[in-house]
């Protein structure tokens, strides 16, 4: 496999962040609506659910979906409450 400097940096960053006990996308998904609600309540889901926060830092696709969910809930909140 050939690497460029940028890719090497990305790869080493990913390696540096690696911990043995990471959750996968499924487990993150299971917790995502709860995580988003805690965030919207102005509390810190990162503290309450650190392994989910860790996955969201590492997984771009889950992070993208989380941000969209947050935006959707923010938009709906005034109308639902």
């Amino acid at each position: 496999m050939k690497l460029t400097k940028d890719i090497l940096r990305k790869l080493i960053q990913a390696v540096a962040m690696t911990v043995p006990e990471e959750i996968g996308c499924d487990e993150c998904f299971d917790k995502l609506s709860e995580f988003a609600e805690v965030k919207l309540a102005g509390k810190s889901p990162e503290k309450a659910m650190p392994i989910v926060a860790d996955h969201l830092r590492k997984c771009g696709e889950c992070r993208e979906e989380y941000e969209a969910l947050l935006a959707a809930l923010k938009d709906l909140k005034p109308r639902l409450n």
């Binding site: 998904f29 299971d30 917790k31 995502l32 609506s33 709860e34 988003a36 609600e37 979906e65 969209a68 969910l69 959707a72 809930l73 709906l76 639902l80």
Partner: peptide, 13 residues
């Protein structure tokens, strides 16, 4: 684990 609507939106997203 959350409001039903939050869960449903998560699935939709």
């Amino acid at each position: 684990e959350s409001a039903f609507v939050s869960w449903a939106l998560k699935v939709a997203v």
